[in-house]
Nucleic acid binder design. Structure first.
Lengths: 130, 130
DNA sequence: CTGTATCCTATATGATACTG
DNA sequence: CAGTATCATATAGGATACAG
């Protein structure tokens, strides 16, 4: 069956798997926070759960935890627990995660250069239909 | 309210909007088809609806049409109708769409280089939990 | 050939309450 | 502080039937 073959192709395609990995609502933001620091312009550094929670003001606890876990699972960040009272947990980019963060700078550059054009086209298209 | 401000930030962030634009299940595949041709290695060229439908064997008519329309709306592809009987419709990358396709080559390169590491880590993580 | 219209399901995300 | 558990909702995606 064609569909089965194609789904197999999709499952095997590295680009497709990368898109699935980075397309979550909070993935890019967490990588950006850990890669650029809270001011979005500094050096990579570890951040605590509460610090991330405050920086990404719109994130729910569920999604923050879930996204952090999945990034840890994929070896993109590390999770470090210090047994203070109360407990202290910090997250930091791995080498692999840093490499992903760096790659996404290219994506960011394209976005900054061209997304305005995209949205201009979108508005024009909608006006033409109306 | 923090959340409102953060959502406003999200809505304004070009990188985030770009990820929303390219993260659809069929977006990258359609761009790739129009940018590389059916053999995924050639030159950019126009393709007909039925040709895309055959190449992307897993896509439903609904999703193919919907994705093509949204890409046209954003000025990434053009839709050309020739009034034969029955009608002939072809799609082609615009300059902007071609530029996006080119940018995604960098993403593809990262994926080909590093996604195996990611999945190796993932398996190791799952085994450690079990 | 190139779609539209309708219904249906799966998944992602979010809100809220509770805990070591 | 750093989560977990549960419930609710929105949206993406797909199956199927029909049409110019």
């Amino acid at each position: 069956m064609d569909k089965a073959e194609y789904n197999a192709f999709l499952s095997a395609c590295p680009s497709h798997k990368l898109l699935e990995r980075i397309s979550g609502k909070w993935v890019a933001l967490i990588l950006s926070a850990l890669g650029s620091g809270p001011d979005c312009a500094g050096q990579p550094r570890a951040m605590r759960y509460s610090e991330l929670s405050r920086l990404l003001a719109g994130v729910s606890q569920k999604m923050l935890t879930q996204t952090l876990r999945s990034l840890e699972r994929d070896g993109l960040i590390t999770r470090t627990v210090v047994a203070t009272v109360p407990v202290t947990v910090s997250y930091e980019l791995t080498e692999l995660g840093l490499s992903l963060f760096t790659m996404m700078r290219g994506l960011k550059l394209w976005a900054q250069t061209h997304m305005d054009d995209v949205f201009t086209n979108r508005v024009a298209y909608d006006n033409a239909s109306a």
